[in-house]
Design a protein around this nucleic acid. Structure first.
Length: 425
DNA sequence: ATCACGGTTTGCA
DNA sequence: CTAACGTGCAAACCGTGAT
């Protein structure tokens, strides 16, 4: 069985901020979620201070300032671009790469014969560090699930120096190691399942690994059964070089301030629909229906609460932003009730299918279809080249008073000349 | 009794 | 000064009506 490597960027968002600001080296830094809501990335210094992941910023801001923690609003333009650079470099080290998330990828390591995988992966680390400034760790094992654990070991245990190959351990050594790791570190075991396993007396990876497959299947699910097999070195999850098309596309966001008017909600819904439709077209699919939802702030139980959603079927499946937005706005009008302070809205595209397979009827208008396709193409090209929303439909609004807060964002160092300090294009 | 469905909940990252 | 708590996705689950 060919080994698999899982390459994961260390504290990715925090490392991106640091890569362009060397003064932050050794300093505790956090990156916040949209709206500067929760902590989504922490440097090692912050982890050492015991600040948990996902903590609402307002709860810890005072304490954080005392410790000299530097906070950043998330800067997805920067992180996305840095990710593309890291992934591009990593792709050169293997013929098979699965980009699993913004900061991790799997690499197939077949055909290396007896060569030293650990040394090879040290080279990978060094090259990525040199080429991008981002530190990465590498786990190597027979299956993706084990590679994830090996990566965890590479990160947490200093002796490994950022690379851990389970293939170099004897079965006995691996058993001992896995018995020291909590079951919740396993890929696919979250809080919920970890708790249930704990009640059954399974607390370590080694215990889960030696559990009976059929019993696991019956008590939990096929998914967890597969995980157990993978922990035993039986590959059930293949490296997927190309991402399968999405079955649904969601776009939702909390507002920067409470929103009360249908007008503002309409702008938000329209702009979310625009984002989702761009994704839809990029995978060359059409949507059969669109759902809209709005809700008030449940963290303020003293205020009147309201939440509702509405599905709107499209007359014929489409990828045209105008048709999708029109349908979404109809749905929104149907569920909108005045007198509430709305916190969040979202839309979802459902019933996705490849555009080429879309059923045609006698009443189709091929000329209109091709006009729509060309307009969407022009919009996509212009917006890709010149920036999001350079060209947009009017219902998006101009003011956008509802848009999210991001008070502490760093410059988009790699994608916008105008934001680089001391440079003006 | 079984299936397809749509909608909701659960779970993960 | 105040108020301030993410997003995206799939699988599992569940009730319903059709067969």
């Amino acid at each position: 069985m060919a080994p698999v490597a899982l390459v994961d960027c260390n504290n990715f968002y925090a490392s991106c901020e640091r890569a362009f600001n060397p003064k932050l080296e050794g300093k505790p830094i956090v990156v916040l979620s949209n709206n500067d809501g929760c902590v989504v990335a922490r440097s090692n210094e912050v982890k050492a201070l015991g600040i948990p992941m996902g903590e609402p910023w307002f709860k810890i801001e005072k304490e954080a300032k005392r410790h000299g923690i530097v906070a950043y609003s998330s800067n997805y333009a920067l992180y996305g671009d840095m990710s593309a650079r890291v992934m591009g470099l990593l792709g050169r080290f293997s013929p098979r790469q699965e980009i699993y998330s913004i900061d991790e990828c799997f690499l197939g390591l077949e055909g290396f014969g007896t060569r030293d995988l650990t040394a090879y992966c040290q080279t990978i680390r060094q090259q990525v560090r040199q080429g991008t400034g981002i530190p990465v760790s590498v786990g190597i094992a027979a299956t993706k699930t084990l590679a994830k654990l090996a990566n965890h070991v590479a990160k947490k245990r200093p002796g490994y120096d950022g690379v851990c190959d389970f293939g170099r351990l004897t079965p006995g050594e691996l058993n001992t190691l896995l018995d020291e790791i909590g079951v919740s570190e396993v890929w696919g075991v979250g809080r919920r399942i970890a708790r249930r396993l704990e009640v059954m007396g399974i607390t370590t990876v080694q215990q889960l690994r030696s559990a009976d497959c059929r019993w696991i299947r019956q008590q939990f699910s096929v998914t967890l059964e597969r995980t157990v097999s993978e922990l035993n070195g039986i590959a059930c999850i293949e490296i997927e070089e190309e991402a399968p098309n999405k079955q649904q596309i969601i776009s939702s966001r909390s507002f920067g301030k409470p929103v009360e008017t249908l007008q503002e909600l309409s702008e938000a819904v329209c702009s979310y629909t625009t984002r989702a439709a761009e994704k839809l077209r990029s995978q060359e699919s059409v949507a059969g229906s669109i759902g809209v939802y709005i809700l008030t702030n449940s963290f303020k139980p003293q205020e009147p609460q309201y939440q509702r959603s509405q599905m709107v079927p499209l007359p014929t499946p489409t990828d045209d932003t105008r048709q999708l937005a029109q349908a979404a706005l109809r749905g929104l009008k149907h569920i909108f009730k005045p007198g509430f302070r709305y916190k969040k809205a979202g839309i979802m595209l459902l019933g996705l299918e490849p555009k080429a397979h879309r059923p045609r009827t006698l009443f189709d208008d091929p000329a209109a279809d091709s006009r729509s396709a060309r307009l969407m193409q022009v919009m996509d090209v212009i917006n890709t080249r010149m920036g999001q929303d350079t060209l947009k439909i009017a219902a998006n609004g101009i003011e956008r008073s509802w848009k999210m807060r991001r008070g502490m964002q760093s410059p988009r160092f790699t994608t916008d000349w105008n934001e680089i300090p001391n440079v003006r294009a």
